[in-house]
Amino acid sequence: MLSRPLTLPLALLLAAALVITLFPVFWIVMTAIKPPTDWNAAPAVWLPSEPTLVNFRTLFDPTALKAYGLSGVSQPATPSMLGSILASVVATALSILIGLFAAIGLSRYATMTKATPLMILSGRMFPPAAIAVPFVIIFSVTNVIDTYSGLIAIYVAVTLPFSTWMLKSFIDDLPREIEEAAMLDGRSRLMAHLTVTIPLVRGGLFATTMFIFILNWSEFMFALVLSYTNVTTIPVQLAKYVTATAGTLYGVQAALAVLAMLPLVIGGFMIQSHLARGMTFGAVKR
């Protein structure tokens, strides 16, 4: 599968890249199983002397750290996990669903003007911070602040340009004649897209879904400013593990971060086989 032979310099380069990429992951996982005394010990503790699951227990039972003489964590992380799952799954599904049909329209039917795709993308060309405050005001006035439907609406709006553009590029790569053949074989336009276009871009569909899910899953700013008490997500919860007496609870933060990484890792492995290229090989003459 290698496109070129693995020479020594290349191997060293790859090893260096791996270390740089994986070291933070290693450190997070280690911190998650360190007892409080090891969290920010100097010199640094690389491998915990006494691995413990107390950090994970604290996520669900805020009193668990009392055994180490630490207190002040007031709420469990469970609501934030459920909140993250709800907001990310629903927002991703809507973003992909709308983006997919928008992409088919833009790719196949010269919808509106030639500038339309760019106009859609330009929705992402200013920093989210610039629209955060206006949205706080709008959401307060319309009473959707601190609701999941409000947060989901924002997530869909923010990710839709990405999902539309990514999916459009995958559909552009698919020869339109394949779905047209289905139309001549007897399918309506809609059914040709549902039975031919969409199954043939499923690799791109999975990749885009993963990408949009990661955006939503790790979103912090909107979740922070558009929520008070009802709505909470993992990134917001992460910032809450600070106590007056003991400072930041690094181990607990790390434990939550590890749990937050899990769905992405599992999802990544699951879609890996669908990301292979050349799914349409043989369909058309080259």
Binding site: E177, A181, G186, R189, P199, L200, A283, K285
Partner: peptide, 19 residues
């Protein structure tokens, strides 16, 4: 629509269903 025209077409790039 194409399906209501009673025609069959062979495309210059064939456009077989790859799956």
């Amino acid at each position: 629509e194409p399906r209501d025209r009673d025609v069959a077409m062979i495309f210059d790039n064939l456009a077989l269903y790859p799956d």
